[in-house]
Design a protein around this nucleic acid. Structure first.
Lengths: 207, 207
DNA sequence: ACGTTGCTGTCAGTGACTGACAGTTGTACA
DNA sequence: TGTACAACTGTCAGTCACTGACAGCAACGT
């Protein structure tokens, strides 16, 4: 076994040092940012302070996040990516709403485990620029969901409005399910609420 | 007839001088901004230039528009306000989708008359900050629509998800109707497309 | 060992946005 | 009609998000 073989094997097991330090820096930026946000709120923290707390230069911050808002929305964005990815790997035989519901299982369980979710939601709602950025990201997510749903349904989302309508309506319902779940004090029935939403929409959109 | 009576009568007929000059300044800011945007695009124009072209100070610009993006979205926002207002004054006997369709007649006809709509849409789509702001404004509009629809349906949007789902889905469909209408070269059938959307959703959401 | 590639900090700069203050003008009221 | 009040405006100074350019350094393939 030569040296290069060892390197190649390790690379397949876990990414190289460069990738790992990048991921660590990103995580440190997120952690530092959330610590500061919890202390003083989003708008009262500057990018310079976040970068300082994460031991990088302010310039580097913007090499990880296009805008300041993105660091606050990073976790939500990660779950969006997971949802899209999961939907794409669901069996094609499932009807759209079922596939969406099942694709949500993993992100939902992660969300439940997140203790500070409530304060994050409050922070986002209380800051117009965060709301705006979140909406833009949601729009992009719905676009990707419509793409995947269209492929599953065998239609082009640019022609047939239904994939995008399903994606948009489902996400709107999901937002409300989250909100009411938080208002009710984060009980253990989040997945049930998502299931109920699917049923409600099945009667409407597929009935 | 005393002096104060005259003043009061005039005030009822048309707003005072102060209100009129304010409206005129606002319009001049919008016109100046759109002239510059058409020339060089949104991002290449500074607030200072827009204010200069409208003969006001940059500080005054921000007394009319909270953020730079708002001047570019002012017309769309005006039509959103009109839609909400019209919906609130539709007879309570109409089912939600019919009321929405009818409330859209006036804004739709204004939209058709707007010659530069196409370029405005392209400008918005081509600029992330405009997309974000537009999404945020759309979110606020859907909130207001859900409020009005909830009142019509006799339910509380905070409890029953249906008003918001109807609002969100209808607006998503409307966006697509606009987009395809523009892609098709702005024919005269915009209202038809809205009517068709209503029918499509009626089968789904109310059927 | 060595060239290449990618990540980083430094620096200088632009432009959005804000608070404070003072001057001016529309407006209500005596 | 004069006068106190309120609303609107410009000026000024300042903060902060964000960017391009450049140089140093560390990781990667050969």
């Amino acid at each position: 076994m030569t040296q290069s073989d060892v390197t190649a094997t390790e690379a397949r097991v876990r990414p190289g040092l460069r990738e790992r330090t990048k991921a660590r820096t990103r995580q440190e930026l997120i952690d530092a940012a959330f610590a500061l946000f919890a202390e003083r709120g989003f708008e009262a923290c500057t990018v310079d302070e976040i970068a300082d707390a994460a031991d990088v230069s302010p310039r580097t911050f913007f090499r990880y996040f296009a805008v300041k808002e993105d660091v606050a929305l990073a976790r939500l964005q990660d779950e969006s990516d997971m949802l899209v990815h999961n939907l794409a790997t669901r069996p094609a035989s499932e009807p759209p709403l079922t596939a969406l519901r099942e694709a949500l299982r993993e992100p939902v369980s992660r969300l439940r485990a997140q203790t500070d979710l409530c304060s994050v939601m409050k922070m986002v709602e209380g800051c117009p620029s965060l709301v705006a950025r979140k909406m833009a990201l949601n729009g992009a997510r719905e676009e990707r969901l419509a793409e995947v749903l269209g492929a599953r349904m065998g239609v082009d989302p640019a022609v047939d409005p239904r994939p995008r309508l399903i994606a948009t309506t489902f996400m709107a319902g999901l937002s409300q399910a989250y909100r009411s779940w938080i208002d009710d004090g984060l009980p253990d029935d989040l997945q049930d609420r998502v299931d109920r939403l699917s049923e409600l929409l099945r009667g409407g959109l597929e009935g």
